[in-house]
Each structure stands twice: as C-alpha cells, then as structure tokens.
C-alpha cells in the first residue's frame, strides 16, 4: 500500500516516454536481433561469395568469416545475457513481487539463452559444408 500521495507522473517523464519505453522493449529484443543480423550476414555472405567467387575460390575464407562473426555474436549475446541477469536477479531490499523492471530483465535473459542456441545452430552448417555446391 503506497498510501495517499500526489501523482508522480511528471510531464517531462512522459515526454521521455518514447525513448524509455522503446529502450526497455528493444532491450529485450536485442539478443534476438543479434541472432537476426548474424543469420542475415551468414546467408548474404554465403550467397554473394558463392555467386561472385564460387567454387574455384573455395569457401575457406567464407567459413572463417562465419566463424569470426559467430564468436562476435555469441560474445555480444553473452554480454547482453549477463546484463539482463543483473537486472533480473533479486536484490536485498526487494519485496518478492517481480516489478516490471525485473520482469524485463528476466525476459531478456531467457531470450539471450534462446538466441545463443539459435546462433550456434545457424553456424553449424559452416562447420560441416566445405563447398558452394
């Protein structure tokens, strides 16, 4: 029970709402977005490489690039997961109800995990496939 008090909704706060709101919503979508870009770069990279340089050039460079890209994406997702974990993990002064801030941290953490797995899946073809055929 918060008791009788005057509204804390300030005009300024509301003006900044778009930035704040989209900020927190996009933060939960950050890890899947990294997955999406990793996916896009792998697909577009392979398409362009195979169309323009093709089989004669071999795809060693392509596979190495995908490996590098994958490491970068996994690091970024792991960092995002860590930040989300910090946002979610309970602090001492918390009552047990999960507030919207912590909830967004929890959702972002779970999405980081799924995106991590997704990136690993998508990178696997480059591990096994050695040509453009």
């Amino acid at each position: 029970m918060k008791g009788d008090r005057v509204t804390g909704i300030s005009h300024r706060q509301d003006q900044d709402e778009f930035r704040g709101a989209t900020g927190s919503l996009f933060r939960i979508a950050l890890a899947p977005t990294i997955w999406a870009f990793h996916f896009l770069f792998c697909y577009a990279g392979a398409a362009v490489w195979c169309a323009k340089f093709g089989t004669p050039g071999g795809i060693a460079f392509l596979r190495l690039s995908i490996a590098g890209l994958t490491v970068l994406a996994l690091l970024a997702i792991a960092w995002q997961g860590w930040r989300s974990y910090r946002q979610w993990a309970p602090h001492d002064h918390d009552d047990h109800v999960e507030g919207s801030h912590r909830f967004l941290g929890h959702a972002a953490l779970l999405l980081s995990v799924i995106s991590f797995v997704g990136v690993v899946y998508v990178a696997m073809p480059a591990l096994f496939i050695g040509s453009c055929l």
Binding site: F39, C42, Y43, A46, A47, C50, I59, L62, I114, V117, G118, Y121, V122, M124, P125, A126, F128, I129, S131, C132, L133
Partner: peptide, 20 residues
C-alpha cells in the same frame, strides 16, 4: 538449386524454432 550452405542455414534455423 541454391548453394547447399545457404540451404543448411535455413535448415538449422527451422530446427531451432522448435525450441521456443
């Protein structure tokens, strides 16, 4: 007739979507 490696990316993502 797309390159095999391109197909494989989509194959992998199609399996990954099963998780969520």
């Amino acid at each position: 007739g797309l390159p095999m490696i391109s197909l494989a990316f989509f194959s992998a993502a199609s399996e990954a979507v099963v998780i969520p």
